[in-house]
Computed example of a mutant assay.
Amino acid sequence: MNAQTPHQPTTTPPLVIMTDLDGTLLDHDTYSYAPAIPVMERLKKAGIPLMLNTSKTAAELMSLRNELENSDPYVVENGSALYLPADFLAENSAQNSGDHVHILGAVRSEILTLIQKIRVEEKFLFTGFADMEVAEVIEYTGLSESAARRAMTREFSEPLIWQDSAHQLRKFEALIANHGLRLLRGGRFVHVIGACDKGKCLQWFRNWFASADQRVPRFVALGDSQNDVAMLKTADIAVIVRSSHHEPPDLEQQSAVIITDETGPQGWATALTQILDDEQI
């Protein structure tokens, strides 16, 4: 981890693509990204960064980024931390080893200390990753053993299986908010994270480009669910990728919004192809 402020890339791209993974770039059921490969190659050839912005951990992203040959910045654990790989940065910062990590959320150890304390005090019923063995995470997520172990290497958030009433969940949410934490409702879990979201990370990158006194690229964001809304609202062009499992999220904003006809990576690829064609890239 490098604590210094990173330098900007040597050249500013015309667009930056920021995308959710599950149900967006990755098929909801098969996790395949095959339909998106030609578009990803087109982005790479044009020098347009493809930034992954996901609820996954850095460990989970490592193998996927290797598969995708993706060396662009990425965001983990629902906007909690962003990583800037050394080879993305300007040449004069290349001597810095590894990724520069910028934390926008909370550290997991602090999250665990608080939620375990109020669970005892208020008798809340929930089970977090910290309470589970690998076999239980596999049971809840359907992941393989190696994937489950990577999912458990959380640094900035704690997923919970909520086993109490809706009233108690609202009370829990209010209590953690008093300590600067927030609750994010996902498909299978509720996630306790810091005062961050996927949109704040997109804005951080926009400010980062602006601080170089260069032209700020336009940001295209793609997502499929409610926890992508902050990112979609912050983008210049928002793409809601249709899901076969739920309705598109509500998005009230003024910038351009595209809702795909196709689901998952096929919808992702079609929408980005149209945007790149329109931009003549």
Rank of each mutant, 00 (worst) to 15 (best):
I138Y: 08
Y74E: 14
A86D: 05
T141Y: 02
A86K: 11
V76Y: 10
S55R: 03
K45R: 15
N78Q: 09
N66F: 02
S157F: 00
E110T: 08
H179D: 03
I115V: 06
Y83N: 03
L114K: 03
L160N: 02
L52S: 09
L125Y: 11
N66I: 00
V137Q: 04
S63M: 07
H100M: 10
G79W: 00
V120I: 14
S93H: 13
E158Q: 00
G47P: 10
A130S: 06
V39N: 09
V134L: 13
E158L: 00
R150M: 04
N178L: 05
D99Q: 00
E139C: 15
A59W: 01
N96D: 03
D72W: 04
M152D: 07
H102S: 01
L64G: 03
Q163W: 03
E145G: 01
T141E: 09
D164A: 09
A135V: 12
L125H: 15
T57H: 01
S93F: 13
T54A: 07
E67K: 03
V101Y: 01
S55E: 02
Q95S: 10
Y83W: 00
F156S: 06
E41M: 07
F156P: 07
E69F: 06
R149T: 13
R154A: 07
R149K: 11
A130N: 00
Y140C: 01
R149V: 14
P49Y: 05
R119P: 04
E122A: 13
A174K: 13
E41A: 11
A58G: 04
A58K: 08
V120E: 14
N92R: 08
E121D: 14
A130Q: 05
S80H: 12
M62H: 09
W162E: 01
L112K: 02
V134W: 09
L181V: 03
V134I: 15
A81I: 11
M40A: 05
L160Y: 09
T153R: 12
R150C: 00
H100Y: 14
A59Y: 02
A147K: 01
S80F: 11
A147E: 15
A151T: 05
F124H: 11
S146N: 14
L50E: 13
F88N: 05
P85R: 04
A177S: 15
H100N: 14
L84Q: 02
K117I: 02
K123H: 15
K44W: 05
I48E: 02
I111F: 00
L82N: 12
A90W: 01
R119D: 10
M132F: 11
K123Y: 13
I161G: 06
S55K: 08
I118Q: 05
F156D: 11
R119I: 05
